[in-house]
């Protein structure tokens, strides 16, 4: 059945469809391809060995052995409440986890985040003790810490825009700021 013994070391991106046996699936991650905007409707005919049937069987097995947990489905349905067209979205502009190189030997480096909505930025530092942040340009604000559709804590930013919270956010979190008649919500993140 599997004939192509000659195909040792077939590259991952090779269009050749032989059954490469060179351990190609044990390599590192493929580079991020440039052609990700391909049309993507990659329907194809399955060969005589019935790979399409096998894939369907796998799909069935996943539905039985590893389905989306019901409670997660419910949470996703409820997340519709987070859809708020009136609030300005403060997008993540800096995340130390992604944009900074790790500090050697410092495992407890705080997570530094910067969110930006137009001219307003919100800096947040998440530590084991809680969170510290500042709204810039400096301005007072009422701040809700969200852990889902419902607020989990309320904070206040002083005249200099500074705020502190004594509970570190766990899991998904966002901040909803009310300042000078407008509402700004930071992009959801997991910390």
């Amino acid at each position: 059945m599997s004939g192509g013994c000659e195909g040792h070391g077939v590259p991952f991106d090779d269009w050749d469809d032989r059954d490469g046996r060179g351990g190609w699936d044990d390599r590192g991650d493929p580079g991020d391809g440039d052609d990700r905007d391909g049309d993507g409707t990659g329907e194809e005919t399955d060969d005589a060995s019935g790979t399409g049937v096998l894939e369907a069987e796998l799909r069935q097995a996943a539905a039985i052995l590893d389905p989306v947990p019901a409670e997660l489905r419910r949470i996703a349905v409820e997340a519709y409440a987070l859809h708020d067209l009136d609030a300005r979205l403060a997008e993540l502009a800096f995340d130390s986890l992604q944009d900074a190189s790790p500090v050697r030997g410092a495992d407890d480096t705080p997570r530094m985040l910067t969110f930006r909505a137009g001219e307003v930025t919100v800096d947040v530092e998440v530590t084991e003790q809680g969170l510290i942040g500042q709204v810039l340009p400096p301005r007072p604000a009422r701040i809700e810490v969200l852990g889902g559709p419902h607020a989990v804590a309320a904070l206040t930013a002083d005249d200099r825009g500074r705020f502190t919270g004594d509970t570190p956010p766990a899991g998904p979190f966002a901040l909803r700021l009310r300042t000078g008649g407008e509402v700004i919500v930071t992009e959801w993140l997991r910390v």
Binding site: D13, W15, D17, D19, D25, P30, G33, G42, S49
Partner: peptide, 21 residues
């Protein structure tokens, strides 16, 4: 997965054949 669209079809075939084997 951060992989090129063009590589998916061939890889899928190989993986499914490997599993079949």
């Amino acid at each position: 997965l951060g992989i090129a669209v063009g590589s998916i079809g061939p890889t899928r075939q190989r993986c499914l054949r490997r599993l079949r084997a």
